[in-house]
Every structure is written in structure tokens, then in C-alpha cells.
């Protein structure tokens, strides 16, 4: 199973390295979003000055995670798209790969891509928005746990909509309600990591438990999800 997962993850990362869809399209989009969100939030900067900057600082964690969610939806869509042509998913199954392994591999590939993207986008956002950083360890733990939660739960629901023609518009509808608790917890934990408010580790732990739950669900259900497509 883990060998299969490793093969699938390596395959997806290789596809990304040669096609650069995430790196050359989703990443610039996310950076653009960082700048746009900053501009929109501070439109009253001229009249209100520093007060408006405080608002930007306060909403920075929320804005960052909203952008990361958009990027995640795109990355998940891409992850499904590379399998959808020429009945590739059926081919993977016929090659004798374990469905749980396929799930783990695809989720791992999304996890790695998102993590790389979030590092760059997060650095840009928190620098541009001028936020303090109280705890590097908590921030790192939060980003890791959240990305794992997003990749695992997102992969389950992306598989639910795989093979349909309206996949791109339907997947967000399925995923966003599920990601809502993740977004809430991630925002609270990040606030705590940036501004030094207590309680961040609890949120981080909750995120980690959520992702474990969905890794389990994904490993159990991928078999059924891939059965008919």
C-alpha cells in the first residue's frame, strides 16, 4: 500500500514538475489575490490611516486561509484532471494498485504541492500585511495540520465528483462546507501563532485529528469510489 502511495505521489509530483500548472498558474493567482485582498481591505487607508492598517493585520490570517482554500480547490481539481483523461483511474486499478494507496499517494502529492505554495504565499501575505510573528513553531504546526486536513478531506470529495463533466463547479460545492471547520480552526490557530493569543495548540491538535479522521475515511472509501466511474 505504501509503495503504491509512493509511486502515485511521485507520478503526480513529476507531472506537476513538467507541466507547472500549480507553480505557473495557481501560485501567481494566489499572490495576486494577496495583493488584491490587501488593497480592497485598505481602500479607506487615505482617510483612516493606521486604523485601516490594523484591520488588515487582524484579518490577515482569515484572508490567507481563504486564499489557501481557493488554491487547494484548484490543486484538487488538477489532481483529478490528470486522472480523468483516457480512463486513467481504471488503468491504475487494473495495474493492481491498492485503492487506499492511490488515495494516500494522491493526497500526499496535493499536500506537498499545497505546502510549497502556502510557504511562498504565506511569506508574501504576512510580510505585505505587516503582521507580527509570536510563535514560529505553532505557525509551522498549524500550516502542516491544516494542509493535511485540506488535502485528505478534499481528496475524498474530489473523488466523489470525479468523472463528471461539471466537476470544476461541483467540487467546491461539496468541499467548502466540509472545509469550513478547517478554515475556522486554522484561522484561530494562526491568529494565536501571529499575535500570541493562547489556545493555538488546541486548534492545531483539532486540525490534526480532523485530518487523521479523513485519511481513514479516504482509505476506507476510495475502493468504493473508484469502483464505478
Amino acid at each position: 500500500m505504501f509503495r503504491d502511495a509512493w509511486l502515485i505521489a511521485k507520478k503526480d509530483i513529476r507531472i506537476e514538475l513538467s507541466s507547472k500548472v500549480i507553480f505557473a498558474q495557481v501560485l501567481p493567482f494566489s499572490l495576486l489575490f494577496v495583493v488584491l485582498a490587501g488593497m480592497v481591505v485598505t481602500t479607506d487607508f487615505v482617510t483612516k490611516g493606521a486604523e485601516s492598517r490594523n484591520v488588515l493585520e487582524q484579518v490577515a490570517p482569515a484572508v490567507f486561509w481563504i486564499i489557501a482554500t481557493f488554491a487547494a480547490i484548484m490543486a484538487l481539481g488538477r489532481s483529478q484532471a490528470v486522472e480523468s483523461s483516457n480512463g486513467n483511474l481504471d488503468a491504475l486499478r487494473m495495474a493492481g494498485l491498492d485503492p487506499a494507496g492511490i488515495f494516500l499517494g494522491k493526497a500526499a502529492a496535493v499536500f506537498i504541492q499545497l505546502l510549497a505554495l502556502e510557504l511562498i504565499v504565506g511569506f508574501a501575505a504576512f510580510t505585505l500585511y505587516g503582521v507580527p510573528l509570536a510563535s514560529v513553531g505553532l505557525l509551522a504546526a498549524t500550516v502542516l495540520a491544516t494542509t493535511l486536513a485540506v488535502a485528505s478531506s478534499g481528496m475524498v470529495y474530489a473523488a466523489v465528483a470525479a468523472g463528471t463533466t461539471t466537476r470544476e463547479t461541483f467540487v467546491p460545492l461539496l468541499i467548502l462546507p466540509v472545509l469550513l471547520p478547517v478554515l475556522l480552526a486554522a484561522t484561530r490557530a494562526t491568529e494565536s501563532a501571529l499575535f500570541g493569543v493562547s489556545g493555538g495548540w488546541n486548534w492545531s491538535a483539532a486540525l490534526f485529528l480532523f485530518s487523521l479522521l479523513y485519511v481513514g475515511i479516504g482509505m476506507l472509501t476510495f475502493d468504493v469510489l473508484m469502483e464505478e466511474s
Binding site: V160, A161, G163, T164, T165, F170, L174, E228
Partner: peptide
Amino acid sequence: LGLRRMDLT
């Protein structure tokens, strides 16, 4: 409900 109306078998 959206899923029930997807273009799948």
C-alpha cells in the same frame, strides 16, 4: 442532491 443529478451511471 447535486450529486444525485451528476452525469454518471
